[in-house]
Every structure is written in C-alpha cells, then in structure tokens.
Simulated scan of single mutants.
Amino acid sequence: MALTQLAGIEVDLVRKRMRSLRLTVYAAGRVRVSAPLHTPLAAVEEFVRTRRAWIEKHQQQFAARTPAPQLQFEAGETHFYQGQAYTLAVHPADRPRVELHPETRELHLYVPTEATPDQRAALLTAWYRQQLRALMPQLLAKWEPVVGRQAASWGIRQMRTRWGTCNIGARRIWLNLELMKRPLLCLEYVVVHELNHLHERLHNARFWGLMDQFMPDWRTHKAELNRIHLTPGAPPDAD
C-alpha cells in the first residue's frame, strides 16, 4: 500500500465513511490514519503534526518490545499459561489430551507418536480455548456490575491484531485466545476495556476516565500485556 508523507512522517492514509479522524501506530512503527472521505489533506496533516510526540512515543515502545518466541511444540520448550512459564513435556498416547501440573510447572501434552507439530499445536490451542471458555462467565460476573454494562454475548477468537473487540450495536465482545497465556489481570483489563466500550465507543478522555474509575491500575496491566509482540502487525491496544 502506498504511503503518504504528512508532517515529516510516512503515513498509511485510508479514507472511509466515518465521523472523525483516527490514528493508530502499529508494531514496527507503521502509522495509519483513517479519515472521513471529504476531510482536506491539510487538515489530516495538521492532525498528524499535533500528535507527532504521541506517535514517536509509541514507536519507541514498540522498538523495546520482546518478540514472541517461535515454537515447535517439542519437549523442553517453555509455554505460558496465565502469565506463568511451564516446561512442555510430550508423551506418546492413543488418547490426546493436555494436563497442567502447577506443582512442577510442567505442561504435559499426550499425543500419538506420529503427531505433527501442527497437530500438537492444535491440541494445545483447543485446551487454551477450553480454559478461557470456562473462565469467562466468572470474569463477566465480577466486572459487569463494576462497569455497569452487560454484554449480550461473548466469543473467543485467535486474532492477529487485537487483544479484544466490541461490537457495540450487538453488545458482543470478543477475546483473543492468546490472553490465556498472559497474567490473569491482563485478561481482566481487556474484559473491562471492552465492556467500557458499551459506555463510550471512542478511545477518548471520557473512555480513559471511566477506565480510571472502574480499574484504577489498568495502566500496569496494559503495559504488561503489550510487553511482548502479539504479531508483527499488532496494534498497541485492544479495540
């Protein structure tokens, strides 16, 4: 996609049907500006200029992040569950299953001898999904009364570029399956973040003020959540 030079910054400028300008900084420093169809280019450039310090701050934060490890799902690898590191143990078995052993910090994967890395990954992914599905009703019961909004429904996805999303019209929230690998409070931060969108659509002063009210230490959890890259194109936050 062609980039546009605005206020000395290379910008991916996208015009769409929307009411206001929106700025996003992606991993690797890429900057994207979404603008209403008829907004003059000069106004877009001024928008970028006034947010230059914010852009540079987030680019520096991305540069300092730790890249996610490449996994082969072999014995001895380190895998994470709720922010804790577990050593993967692989056992031959006719009945595929996953067992978590917190006392020894081991994650046991039982698979047929001929199982490929992709099949091992699929089994572990299904296990993570099962854990998150069992946990979500408890988290919603905890946080919906605090936020004062209730999700009509929720779902789990493997998302490449978001920790969570909220369909405001349908009052449906989606959580990234990868959150089961992060500390529990990081998952709770995303739940509160998405529920808060049922108060306020935009990431504006009102939105963050409400976050301060509902979860005063949200900044700590957000920083921990974004310390490791989600994917090379991941943005800085939940949506």
Rank of each mutant, 00 (worst) to 15 (best):
R32L: 12
Y86Q: 08
T24E: 12
T165S: 15
W127A: 10
W218M: 05
A223Y: 04
V33R: 01
Q150W: 00
Q82V: 09
A85Q: 07
M136P: 03
P69F: 07
A152W: 00
P235N: 13
V192W: 10
L6K: 07
L13Y: 08
G8P: 06
H199N: 10
P137R: 10
F73M: 12
S153H: 07
E194G: 04
N226G: 13
L139C: 04
T24I: 06
K222T: 11
H193G: 06
R19N: 14
V146G: 08
A2R: 02
R65I: 03
H79Y: 09
M136D: 09
W54F: 11
R49E: 02
R219W: 01
E188L: 01
L71E: 01
A121Y: 11
S153T: 06
L195E: 11
L71G: 02
Q158M: 12
E144Y: 01
A68I: 06
L135R: 15
E45C: 03
T4F: 04
L202Y: 11
D212L: 04
E77F: 06
Q59Y: 08
Y110M: 04
L37G: 05
R171M: 07
A75H: 00
R52N: 07
P36A: 03
L140E: 07
F62W: 08
A2K: 00
I156H: 11
G76D: 02
Y86K: 14
A42D: 01
Y26S: 09
G209K: 00
Q70V: 13
L123K: 13
G233F: 00
Y110W: 03
S20N: 14
G155H: 12
R129H: 05
F80T: 12
A121D: 12
R15D: 13
M159T: 14
E99M: 05
P216E: 05
R227Q: 14
V11M: 03
D12F: 08
P236R: 02
K16T: 15
R105H: 13
W208P: 03
L88P: 05
H197C: 01
L175K: 01
L3C: 07
T24D: 09
A64G: 06
P236L: 01
T113G: 14
C166E: 10
T165W: 05
R227A: 15
I9Q: 15
L109P: 06
T87I: 04
T39K: 01
H197P: 03
E106K: 15
Q61F: 09
K142S: 14
G76E: 05
